[in-house]
């Protein structure tokens, strides 16, 4: 167990989330079961008040989770100095079996809570409150994701062992036979890049056409594709090293923390994209142009940043890696 101040801060906030989350969960169960906007019953009146409390709690959790997630990555990076073999967060995360699962949970939960808030805004805008039951039923589901994440968090910090030797990201993300993700390295770069830029082109096209369903699919596809492209191609140009594929190292100081910008633009862009599509699909009367716009700007910025590295490298050296 690591009892450093950073870890304590994360665990204390986790405990708070769990406390408030459970509270909100219990209230949500009642709201999801009995809420009826047309009823004049006393219970309905109390439920409407409770709905506000749950919404406030969820907002509180979400707006704290955003900076806390960045802080979590930052802390993992610092802990990597302490653990033998680890050179960045990748080693630390992989030092426990469910490390990647924890990471996935953290990202998924941010998306889920974000979508919940989008739905909440949409709901409040409509005087008949059409999505209230749906959104609280959804929260009942999301709550289990939250609990899973918090328990993973706890076990993660509990299982961290300073004396254990872990694998460095250089071996975790390598094309050698011992690497567990070796098979993705078989994808040739030209195909990968044409898929990446092709998806982006589709993204731009659908943005101008405001095609909700297409936009949703493109954004959903863009997340794994971008991470793959970062590992296989763009990462090597950030490090200027053809053998280094780690998607975590560029979060470090040596690369001017560019990873934070890269991931914020990627996740932000796709989040707004998916939200815009869901909102447009749910409410056909409006197009939610501002969300489309945010999505487009952030994604374009993401593509510009990652493309700048290979181009600048080529400009300076006259060759590709």
């Amino acid at each position: 167990m690591m009892l450093s101040p950073d870890v304590i801060a994360i665990l204390v906030l986790d405990a708070l989330f769990l406390l408030f989350g459970t509270f909100a969960f219990v209230l949500s169960l009642g709201i999801a079961r009995h809420f009826d906007a047309h009823s004049f019953h006393e219970r309905q009146y109390a439920l409407e008040k409770k709905a506000l409390l749950v919404a406030t709690i969820i907002q509180y959790i979400f707006y704290l989770k955003l900076p806390l997630f960045l802080f979590f990555i930052f802390t993992s990076d610092t802990i990597s100095n302490l653990i033998t073999g680890a050179m960045c967060a990748a080693g630390v995360v992989n030092s426990v079996d469910f490390g990647l699962l924890l990471f996935a949970f953290k990202i998924i939960n941010l998306y889920l809570f974000g979508f919940w808030l989008v739905l909440h805004t949409l709901d409040l805008k409509n005087e008949t409150l059409p999505y209230t039951r749906a959104k609280f039923s959804l929260f009942v589901l999301f709550f289990f994701f939250l609990v899973a994440e918090i328990f993973c968090d706890f076990y993660f910090f509990n299982a961290l062992n300073i004396d254990k030797i872990v694998s460095c990201c250089g071996t975790l993300f390598s094309a050698t036979s011992t690497s567990s993700i070796r098979f993705i390295f078989e994808l040739p770069h030209p195909i990968l890049l044409s898929m990446f830029y092709g998806t982006f082109a589709l993204h731009v096209m659908l943005f101008f056409r405001k095609d909700a369903l297409g936009f949703l699919l493109v954004n959903l596809f863009f997340i794994p594709l971008s991470i793959l492209a970062l590992i296989l191609f763009f990462g090597t140009y950030i490090y200027e090293l053809p053998t280094h594929h780690c998607p975590f190292c560029f979060l470090q100081k040596e690369y001017h923390y560019v990873g934070y910008l890269i991931y914020i633009t990627l996740f932000g862009g796709t989040f707004f994209g998916i939200s815009a599509s869901i909102m447009s699909l749910a409410d056909q009367r409006k197009t939610y142009a501002s969300f489309y716009r945010y999505s487009f700007y952030l994604t374009a910025l993401f593509v510009a940043i990652v493309s700048a590295y290979p181009l600048l490298y080529f400009y300076r050296n006259g060759v590709w890696l």
Partner: peptide, 14 residues
Amino acid sequence: IQMLSVIFFLSVPI
């Protein structure tokens, strides 16, 4: 920043 964040997370949100 890391230290300031710890102090922040343990005061303002609480």
